[in-house]
Design a protein around this nucleic acid. Structure first.
Lengths: 214, 214
DNA sequence: CTCCGCATGTGGACAGCGTACACAAGGCTG
DNA sequence: CAGCCTTGTGTACGCTGTCCACATGCGGAG
């Protein structure tokens, strides 16, 4: 009598009850293992124990499903970044704390990229429009998207006097570019397969460069 | 006697003669317009005026074809970077020249990403192994791959005394990360659709950051 | 100069994909 | 309790990548 995500034939109620979320969850698992191109509509419906066309009651498109999965993956990224900040040891002074929080943004970003490459690639696979990377569905526990977390960390850097105010505008794009680029090189670029500790060092070097050059 | 890439039925010789290259060429055009996922085996063979299975005499896989297209796209990138350096005005002194050549590496890279986003994404779409980004098929006119062009520019920076020798090791990954990340943001990230001049400015800012932080 | 082997292109088939259309089930509102 | 409208089903189509057996004819052996 239980069982809702089994094979095809058995479900006790005609209605699934929560198909939309079930599809997103299934898509998320597919994305985790194989990246965005592995998010296959028919596979997701199969996992949800439903016929392929049922998906069209909740998503106009395979693309719409992928979009929803992508948003959720982005939210996971946000949570990893938040966790990285939360795990920070108490800092001696406010400036050190701001600096540590800023670095944690980048470190968490890179950690997620390496631990969940499929989800990371899916989060940044945006066929249509990425403007809604700022959508609330992409936010973490604190309601902030990865982009907003970075912006907040930069603001703190300014407040702490570690970043001149006139350098603040546009700084998120400098920092984001560097960290995102490294993530790309690590995931499927020439730095792929780097030992995790080496990858961590590379990440710290990139963040050093950002601090110096921002 | 000419005419080899027509419709399906007409080709005068039973053998195509240069099918492998024809398929790569067709794939390149598909990639230009729609990125890596647009490189469809059947479409390429159609364009070459050949039956789908003919492709399997030259590529084991769709993936093998895509790989070949990707390499060619990488070579185009190399040529764009070389062109950017070649277009440099004569510099006053050697240090200025080295610096200009270094910046041209990044500027050319970003120019290609924006002018040919489909090819750029295809060049960096490496399903299997990207180790052979250093393969000769990925090189430009001077026989250097994009990665090697960057390395050479950095070496010149050291020779010109603009980059301390102890900062040289691993510097390519710092620079590459930053520029590649910006390219990603510009192509299908939140910076997409930026006015070309604004995009150019963003590129210069990122390169500024690299010069400061490297 | 002829003949035949083997590389190259053809034809047909299959499973899997996204998606459109008409139909079935059954909870919700009146 | 009736019926509507949302949700899930069934069937079908064209597209994809790929497998298999077969056809063709170029180039070297005789």
């Amino acid at each position: 009598m239980p069982s809702a995500e089994n094979d095809k034939p058995n479900r006790e109620t005609y209605r699934h009850g929560d198909l939309r979320n079930a599809l997103i969850e299934a898509g998320l698992e597919l994305a985790r293992q194989g990246g965005p191109e592995a998010v296959v509509l028919r596979a997701a419906t199969r996992q949800a124990g439903v016929v392929p066309n049922a998906a069209y009651r909740h998503f106009t498109d395979r693309n719409a499903l992928l979009q929803a999965v992508s948003q959720t993956a982005m939210a996971h990224l946000a949570r990893t970044m938040e966790a990285e900040q939360a795990a920070l040891p108490p800092a001696t002074d406010e400036a050190a704390a701001a600096r540590a929080r800023f670095r944690a943004v980048g470190t968490g970003y890179l950690r997620f990229a390496q631990e969940e490459p499929g989800l990371f690639r899916t989060a940044f696979h945006v066929p249509g429009d990425m403007a809604h990377a700022a959508a609330p569905t992409a936010a973490g526990a604190a309601g902030k998207t990865p982009f907003e977390l970075l912006g907040a960390a930069l603001d703190d850097l300014v407040k702490a006097g570690l970043l001149p105010e006139d350098r603040r505008p546009g700084a998120e794009f400098l920092a984001w570019s560097a960290v995102h680029g490294l993530a790309a090189l690590l995931i499927d670029g020439p730095l792929r397969g780097l030992h995790p500790t080496q990858a961590h060092d590379a990440g710290q070097h990139v963040i050093d460069m950002i601090e110096r050059g921002i």
